[in-house]
């Protein structure tokens, strides 16, 4: 109904509505008329009369503006630093006060050494077949957790690739892509020391990584650490010899295939226990004698899968950060 009123545009409600919608006030026209009249009156007076006032105004404005940009900014930063240190000191103090009430370090009767740890230690070898109790725990009792971890790595690699991969088809990326390509040609600087050292070191590093992965259920280590070692070896090789050589055996396609195959195998082999019931976690693969390489059922293949995913992800991170693609 109110729209039918003639003076609707001057009502409080309409102005509030405009304010809420973020529009300009609908009172432009009458004000402009007034301004035009004012301009006429000003035009008669010589402009010099207003110059000192304008100068004063400008000075005042500059003072305020420079205060926020110069001294005000400095003051703000100093206050911010003081408050930041104060807050950090308060947090450290509170946490240290809490730590002083914690049970002492290395005591066997601490509340975290409860029946869960006891169960893992007492029954772990029989139930998982792994001599390394930590591996038995993370790849058998809590294998879903580890599956999630591998997926976190995979998703992180995918996200980094989305953010940094150069799309060569797009306009504007051409120059950058050409620069990267140029960089790749001149990248292996043929550093004699680096190449010799890499020639000697890379095979033992990769073999050691494979050893750590394959012995994950027997000794300290496993898929994550072994995969990281293999990734480090690949990165060293890449640094010494350049992308032209690594691309003979490791491209984006290889990365995709290895990651998807490993994660798919892991997910399938562990999700079968969903269908057989949550408590039925025994696998059909025999446990074997504890201490042998081929023992402990699914743990060894799962370790290999995790190791492949981690190695590919480490290398992929490096390659994407270095040249925006693999």
């Amino acid at each position: 109904m109110s729209k039918l009123r003639k003076d609707y545009e001057t009502t409080l409600w309409y102005r509030l509505l405009c304010f809420v919608n973020g529009e300009e006030k609908p009172q432009e026209e009458p004000e402009e008329q007034v301004r035009v009249e004012e301009d006429k009156t000003i035009a008669i007076v010589p402009e010099d009369i207003w110059a000192p006032v304008e100068e004063d105004k400008r000075q005042l404005y500059d003072m305020y503006r420079h205060w926020t940009l110069g001294r005000g900014m400095k003051l703000f930063h100093r206050l911010y630093a003081v408050f930041a240190v104060f807050i950090c000191a308060v947090i450290i103090g509170t946490l240290l006060y809490t730590v002083s009430y914690l049970p002492s370090f290395g005591d066997a009767h601490n509340p975290d050494n409860n029946e869960v740890a006891a169960r893992y230690i007492e029954k772990g070898l029989q139930e998982t077949g792994a001599v390394n109790i930590v591996t038995g725990m993370i790849l058998d009792y809590r294998a879903f957790d580890t599956l999630g971890e591998s997926h976190v790595l995979f998703v992180a690699a995918a996200a980094v690739m989305i953010l940094l991969r150069l799309d060569k088809g797009k306009k504007g990326n051409q120059a950058q892509a050409a620069a990267e390509e140029n960089d790749r040609i001149y990248e292996p600087k043929n550093d004699a020391i680096l190449q010799k050292v890499a020639k000697v070191l890379v095979p033992p590093i990769i073999i050691f990584g494979i050893y750590v992965i394959l012995n994950g259920h027997l000794s300290p280590g496993g898929g994550f650490s072994g995969g990281a070692i293999i990734g480090a070896g690949l990165i060293l090789y890449l640094n010494a010899f350049g992308f032209a050589k690594t691309e003979r055996f490791f491209t984006y396609k290889t990365y995709k295939r290895i990651s998807i195959a490993a994660l798919g195998f892991y997910a399938l082999s562990k999700s079968y226990s969903f269908y057989t019931g949550a408590n039925h976690l025994e696998s059909f693969i025999p446990k074997g004698t504890p201490g042998a390489i081929l023992s402990s059922g699914l743990i060894l293949p799962l370790n290999i899968c995790v190791g492949m995913v981690v190695a590919c992800t480490m290398y992929g991170f490096y390659a994407v950060f270095r040249k925006g693609g693999m």
Partner: peptide, 29 residues
Amino acid sequence: APIVVNGIQDVEAYINPVPAGLVLTGIVV
């Protein structure tokens, strides 16, 4: 360290394996 040696499976022999697994998760993330 929680690696079974010589078949000893006594709680008194090994440290707590649970925090090790948690730290592993944390490092990866």
